[in-house]
């Protein structure tokens, strides 16, 4: 079966981020989206540790330990960028000022519940960071994740079995197989990868899907 690799997934998400959007890219896979934002669009990247207008990684040797992203990796600040404290940063997130946030996930439920912070394992040290604020704060929440887990279980589920991060908060899911909107009428398939037919996608997904009338084929970048 055709499927997008992680860079192709990141490139696909990047296509949907418009000029002028204020965007937070979550730690991990979503961070890669930054590598594929079109150079001709001005997009404002927010980092919860107090940056707006975050730029790419610095040249080797130019790292500054006081200029990091939320994943504690060295970054730069674009011209016009700003620094601010945590109160303001989370006001941007919780207060609905960010247009889009892109998050990874363990599971997304049919109702848009997100599970991405804790496996629930008894010996795991829980850590939540800004995940719960991002999940409920942005105008649009995009999730990017593999359609199936490493053990072959679909990560789109009727109900989350992992502890949830937020309830009814996900708007759109980008997987290696499809782009799916979570709507008031259920899950609407917007795109599928080349060569995948809808019946096969539905067979893999334990939640009823509807194929959008305008559904397109995802072309890998």
């Amino acid at each position: 079966m055709n499927r997008l690799n992680r860079n192709q997934m990141a490139a696909r998400v990047a296509q949907d981020i418009p000029e002028g959007a204020y965007v937070n890219l979550g730690i991990g896979l979503p961070t890669r989206v930054a590598n594929y934002l079109p150079a001709d669009r001005e997009i404002f990247l927010h980092s919860e540790n107090g940056l707006l207008g975050m730029g790419p990684a610095p040249a080797p040797g130019m790292e500054d330990p006081e200029l990091m992203n939320a994943g504690k990796e060295p970054v730069t600040l674009l011209q016009g960028g700003a620094f601010f404290h945590h109160g303001d940063s989370f006001a941007m997130m919780r207060g609905g000022h960010l247009d889009i946030c892109v998050l990874g996930a363990f599971q997304v439920s049919a109702g848009g519940d997100l599970a991405n912070w804790h496996t629930g394992a008894a010996d795991a040290i829980p850590a939540v960071g800004g995940a719960m604020d991002l999940a409920i704060g942005a105008k649009q929440v995009f999730v990017m994740m593999e359609h199936l887990s490493k053990s072959g279980e679909c990560k789109i589920v009727p109900f989350c079995t992992y502890p949830v991060t937020g309830i009814g908060c996900v708007d759109r899911i980008y997987t290696d197989l499809a782009v799916i909107d979570i709507t008031a009428h259920g899950l609407l398939v917007r795109e599928m990868v080349d060569g995948l037919d809808f019946a096969e996608l539905q067979r893999l997904t334990p939640v009823p899907l509807t194929l959008a009338a305008t559904a397109a084929t995802t072309v890998a970048a």
């Binding site: 919860e48 945590h86 109160g87 940063s89 989370f90 997130m93 919780r94 829980p126 850590a127 939540v128 960071g129 800004g130 995940a131 719960m132 604020d133 704060g137």
Partner: peptide, 10 residues
């Protein structure tokens, strides 16, 4: 005591 980061700030 684990607190979501924005709730910690708030």
């Amino acid at each position: 005591e684990l607190v979501p980061q924005g709730n910690l700030a708030a």
